[in-house]
Amino acid sequence: MRVALRTIFVIAIALLLQNTIILELRIDGVSPDIMYLLPIAAGIVGGPVDGAVVGFLGGLAADLLLPTPFGLTALVGTLVGFAVGAASGSVARQVRGLPSAVALVTSVIAVMLYAMLGALIGQSQFLHANLAVIAVVVGVVNAVLAGPAVWVLRWALMPPARVRDGAAR
């Protein structure tokens, strides 16, 4: 119960930050997107299931405020969270700097995946957006914020007992 409440709290705060401070940080006309950072960090901290659940819930919350098709961010978040959790295993939790590298690569993939899935459901204009710039901005900012995000998600997803037991397997 405590994990669920903490996770919802983290998602709500991230959503608020995304739609205020982060939205104003325009780099070459593009805003960073920290909503992809949540499933990435959750996947690193808790594994594929936690990554997928946080990706789905965070994406769904983001979709509530976005003008793009409802559920698209949730789908990408779920896939990204699961993939990061499954691929990184316990390695990214222990190697310093690896969360940033994972966040950079996965964020770029997430942006591309979002555009391609959008095009598949009739939003072909997504492919004409400045994809390279969006991917770089989102990837670099998420890489910089990966450390704090992993720390926050560890607080949300890992009660002390779970940490003692060795976290997600």
């Binding site: 769904l60 509530l64 405020l65 409802f70 559920g71 698209l72 459901i121």
Partner: peptide, 24 residues
Amino acid sequence: MSIITLDETGKASVLTTGAKSVAS
């Protein structure tokens, strides 16, 4: 994927618009 399909086909657009309105 079900959510996207329901929203894009308009079958659940009342629900999603309502949820978006509350969120807004």
